[in-house]
Design a protein around this nucleic acid. Structure first.
Length: 566
DNA sequence: GCGATCAGGT
DNA sequence: CACACCTGATCGC
């Protein structure tokens, strides 16, 4: 369950997936998806009141999330303030402009399934990725177009991570495809026996199983019985797969005492066969199943009773999937938004620290003087595992150019970074022999220009004991240059499939657009490079003070949205 | 009466 | 196989 406090250290004037407490003062809100643990405070009376007095505060989310949200009367008051982020084509809006009150237009269009948005903010405090809840397959990061700038991986300052399974115990979770196959097989074998053989899908969350419904529908040519179509009314792609007609053989209906019903061989909807014959019901409860690093995979379906089963299903990435993702991105900071069960925040934070770039123990990096080095294309990776990631990437036509460039980088490089092996040994304790197949940061870049000051800042992230970014406690991290505040926001959707990537939304401002990607994320106190503008201290301080005192600060930004699908 | 929070269950 | 949600008890306003 997400316990993210809502704000990012780098961009504290926006709030994501949390709407209570300090988030009441945010100037813009983002909702990654409609699960309750990401909606805390969203129906609060204080927030409602704030909206009534604000001309500029908006909630940004996907079109589908908007529909799901407004479908619930308790959230209906958001109607005038929700801005759906269009995912189908590049779109541009102004995020906030107090002067004009202008809010740019999105083309309204239905997304196929209520997927989870990822947000990539790009602005003067660096590129910051908020993952929402996400399930990615190993190698997916390299296919996410909007994490790249040309053939390069973007310089990610911070990742706010769905760390639900960031624990070696959850080393592996069977892929979505494998799980789906198991479920299809089980259901097919059962309902094929007679019209009286029916299946009850015991789905606990309100949303997130839609792709299961559509796949079942396609496979068996049948609709899924659900309690209400209301939540799907604006989602024609899903609407056709669900029904309130109880005579279907596949049910995902609910009842407060549905477990009890099932024990008495009744469906939650109370349906029985038309001719009075008793139904033969099996229940399938989607649950997360995981396997340790060396555990032999077992079946993705487990029989838990004479007619009950668990089927593997996860909204979240496994340990190895997260590691792969992070080792590809090599962010400077990683903030967990979830503490895995049975672990402490310190545990997770320490383990994630090993995945941060510039971590003090990372002897593999040698920083060269400021300005001498730009990020260069490639440095020879210390191992050859990198290349194993390529066939995956090249199988997706849209991204061939990226992956072939990556391959080119690999083959072009001549320098060896022999100390990388040390890196690997560091990680043994949390995942011995981790076979991460993704190219590492060093595969793509040499060290970027860094001053000592930035270098020292780099690990402030992971050393914090607080799960919530401690926004204003360390003075040198205060985001002072708010006049230069601008964001490039990328929202990507995780449809929880490893095959469909990737939707991204970008918000940028003109001054920053001129900066190369490798420069745009520099912290404000990094000595200026020829391409960057020195911050004006007095002005910035004043603005910061305004912010700290709760006064409104005008933030101008442009929001662009790009979407691509592979 | 309402909302927040917690415990406990599925 | 551990997620997301529901229910009910309790507390404070």
């Amino acid at each position: 369950m997400s316990s993210f406090a809502g704000r990012m250290k780098e961009y504290p004037t926006v709030s994501l997936d949390r709407f209570d407490r300090e988030n009441l003062h945010a100037q813009a809100y983002f909702l990654s998806h409609c699960h309750k643990d990401h909606m805390k405070g969203l129906k609060g009376p204080l927030l409602k009141r704030k909206l009534q007095f604000s001309r500029t505060v908006r909630l940004y989310c996907s079109f589908v999330t908007k529909e799901l949200l407004l479908n619930n009367p308790k959230y209906a008051f958001w109607e005038e303030y929700v801005v759906p982020l269009e995912l189908e084509s590049p779109t541009q809006i102004s995020l906030v402009d107090e002067a004009s009150g202008e809010v740019g237009m999105f083309r309204s269009d239905a997304a196929p399934v209520p997927r989870v948005l990822r947000f990539l903010f790009e602005g003067c405090h660096g590129n910051v990725l908020y993952t929402g809840d996400f399930r990615l397959a190993v190698g997916d990061a390299s296919r996410m177009e909007h994490l790249h700038s040309g053939s390069r991986v973007k310089d990610i300052q911070s990742v706010y991570l769905d760390s639900t399974f960031y624990d070696p115990r959850f080393y592996q979770i069977p892929s979505r495809e494998v799980c789906l196959k198991g479920i299809l097989e089980l259901i097919g074998n059962w309902i094929g026996q007679s019209p009286y053989h029916v299946v009850w899908l015991n789905c606990k969350a309100a949303y997130g199983y839609e792709y299961l419904f559509t796949n079942l529908g396609d496979e068996f040519g049948t609709q899924i019985h659900v309690n209400s179509l209301a939540m799907f009314k604006k989602m024609p792609e899903i609407l056709s797969y669900v029904t309130t007609d109880r005579t279907t053989q596949i049910h995902a209906c609910r009842h407060p005492r549905d477990e009890e019903f099932f024990q008495g061989n009744r469906l939650p909807c109370g349906c029985s066969a038309t001719d009075g014959s008793p139904l033969r019901i099996i229940s399938i409860k989607p649950s997360t199943m995981w396997f340790g690093e060396r555990t032999k995979k077992t079946n993705v379906i487990i029989k838990t009773g004479s007619s009950s089963y668990r089927a593997c299903f996860s909204f979240h990435s496994s340990y190895s999937e997260i590691k792969d993702f992070l080792s590809y991105l090599q962010p400077v900071n990683i903030f967990p938004s979830v503490v895995p069960i049975g672990r402490s925040l310190t545990d997770v934070t320490q383990m994630l620290r090993l995945m941060c770039r510039n971590q003090p123990d990372d002897a593999g990096f040698v920083y060269k003087p400021l300005g001498v080095l730009k990020r260069s294309r490639a440095q020879r990776p210390s191992d050859d595992r990198f290349i194993t990631a390529l066939p995956v990437a090249t199988s997706l036509p849209l991204l061939v150019s990226d992956s072939t460039s990556a391959a080119q980088n690999y083959f072009d490089c001549t320098e060896s970074n022999g100390e990388d092996e040390d890196d690997e040994e560091e990680e043994e304790e949390e995942g011995k022999g981790d076979v991460s197949k993704a190219p590492k940061w060093e595969d793509f870049f040499t060290a970027e220009p860094l001053s000592d000051s930035q270098n020292s800042q780099s690990h402030s992230c992971c050393s914090t004991a607080s799960q919530t970014p401690d926004l204003f406690s360390d003075g040198d991290r205060i985001p002072e240059n708010l006049d230069a505040f601008s964001l490039t926001l990328s929202a990507s959707q995780s449809n929880q499939s490893s095959q469909n990537l990737d939707d991204t939304l970008i918000l940028a401002q003109s001054e920053l657009e001129e900066l190369p990607a490798s420069q745009a994320s520099s912290d404000f106190d990094v000595p200026p490079t020829p391409e960057s503008k020195a911050p004006q201290a007095g002005e910035l301080l004043q603005l910061y003070r305004k912010l700290a005192s709760g006064q409104e600060v005008v933030i101008r930004g442009q929001l662009f949205f790009f979407w691509s699908s592979s």
